[in-house]
Design a binder for these strands. Structure first.
Lengths: 136, 136
DNA sequence: CTGAATCCCTGCCGATACTG
DNA sequence: CAGTATCGGCAGGGATTCAG
């Protein structure tokens, strides 16, 4: 297939800004993937999409996640503007993690990832991805 | 925000299948991220979204991409059912790489990634991701 | 022209132990 | 309760070289 589907709206891959020839951090796709990158990252985001969570609640929801990595992920997500920390100066010390509006807007992105993965691994996926545990 | 937006269609994070507590390869989100994973992967897909390409054409389009990684990516994408190899028994030997229907259906996924990244890094992104070259 | 094989280096992730 | 410090294993990715 050398022709292009006609009439589709401007967007990838036709957007001229998509003409980068190397994986630059300025590419919007790379930006999003960088935010989502790292083991456990999407699961932490999913948990926070369900509502605010304390550190302990996150740990309880993801038991196999070590303190170090959870801490790393929360720092990472805070740096990228997806998550906000809210320290409550009470006793016992309680810290709430919440998604920023930007973080909430990741919902549709995760949905798109879910939809493709569900379809590609579905019952009639002759050409779908193999189940090779490639890991993310 | 402890309440949930009312009336939105069933989907992440409310889908019961999204209740995994560890990054399992069976999770549709992980499947998609695994397919997209790796430096240069999305750029190779983008190039093929624009049309069929030979090995040399891909190399020309992505000059900074080494043979090893290009080869690796093409194998990876072929294994995951996104790309197909078409060997032409002529001389000089020419091999065409094309996207499968599954591969083409990655278009909307990349678009979603693009849209979020563009918005989050846009002009009014007070809470957007920092430009820290986290790399993907 | 189209790749595969090798080498090395870097950075992620996990386990464990310790602090405000 | 909510993290940080340190260490080590392992896999990903780049450069180079060789083969069909």
């Amino acid at each position: 297939m050398t022709h292009r589907t006609v009439g589709h709206p401007p967007g990838l891959p036709d957007d001229p800004r998509a003409d980068v020839t190397a994986p630059t951090p300025e590419c919007p796709v790379e930006i999003t993937l960088a935010v989502l990158q790292g083991r456990w990252t999407t699961l932490v985001i999913r948990e926070l999409l369900r509502g605010d969570r304390s550190y302990g609640e996150l740990r309880a929801a993801l038991p196999a996640l070590s303190d170090k990595v959870l801490s790393d992920r929360l720092v990472q997500l805070t740096r990228t503007g997806v998550v906000e920390r809210h320290r409550h100066p009470a006793w016992p010390p309680r810290v709430l993690y919440t998604l920023t509006p930007t973080g909430h807007s990741l919902g549709p992105v995760l949905q798109a990832l879910w939809d493709w993965g569900a379809r590609a691994s579905g019952p009639d996926s002759a050409t779908g991805p193999s189940r090779t545990p490639t890991r993310v």
